[in-house]
């Protein structure tokens, strides 16, 4: 019974959201506001019970892991943003986060997304794929080389690079269309199958 009610509510809200395709209307607004409200409530409760309590509350106040006083104090400092007069204090934990994250990411990101990628372009020019790959990388880099005017040979390379970029954008667009259609299919499967039981 509860499951049936859930399916009907979900179907109603799906149709409310779909109704925006015709034009903006109160049903869409209702579903939109409901989603925002429920999401905010869900995340607040989820963060409290699944993040703050098990990672900070219980270990610090029950098991007395005093090292956790540091993140606790940093967290309190972050909340001081809510008070304009002492809001500047929140910059300290923010600085900590920015600094820590940058340090943590820097080497790994460089290795994964720059060095490894550069290494992967050093390939024997024995087949058409490798040739296209190397031309695409070199001409693509020319397109983003702004210290020289894009004229003559540099201009030709940059134009070829732009064509490679266009192909990449086209592929991205195609995949994006596929993703959106997949979501539409998912919703129709729910409406036709779970709700109307036509499947």
């Amino acid at each position: 019974m509860i499951q049936t009610i859930g399916i009907w509510v979900a179907a109603f809200l799906t149709l409310c959201i779909f109704s925006f395709l015709y034009k903006d209307n109160p049903f869409y607004k209702f579903a939109e506001h409901l989603f925002v409200g429920v999401s905010a409530g869900y995340w607040a409760m989820y963060s409290w019970y699944n993040v703050l309590l098990p990672n900070l509350g219980r270990p610090l106040f029950i098991e007395h892991e005093l090292i956790l006083l540091i993140p606790f104090i940093l967290g309190i400092m972050m909340l001081l943003r809510l008070f304009p007069k002492i809001g500047w204090i929140s910059r300290w934990p923010l600085a900590f986060i920015v600094g820590m994250t940058s340090g943590y990411y820097l080497v790994t990101f460089l290795q994964t997304n720059a060095l490894e990628q550069a290494r992967a372009t050093i390939v024997p020019l024995q087949n058409i794929n490798n040739i296209i790959l190397v031309i695409g990388v070199i001409t693509g880099l020319f397109y983003f080389f702004f210290s020289t005017e894009h004229k003559k040979a540099v201009g030709v390379m940059a134009r070829i690079g732009r064509m490679f970029l266009m192909v990449a954008f086209g592929a991205s667009f195609g995949y994006t269309v596929m993703a959106r259609i997949s979501l539409l299919i998912g919703r129709f499967y729910f409406l036709l199958g779970d709700w109307l039981r036509l499947l």
């Binding site: 490894e116 992967a120 995949y175 596929m178």
Partner: peptide
């Protein structure tokens, strides 16, 4: 991965950083 982000992971696949990639509903 979702289809939206799949093209961004092909360089990882080509570089051998991913052993395989299943993109989107397709």
């Amino acid at each position: 991965s979702t289809a939206v982000q799949a093209p961004a992971f092909y360089p990882y696949l080509q570089a051998g950083q991913l052993v395989g990639l299943v993109g989107g509903m397709k």
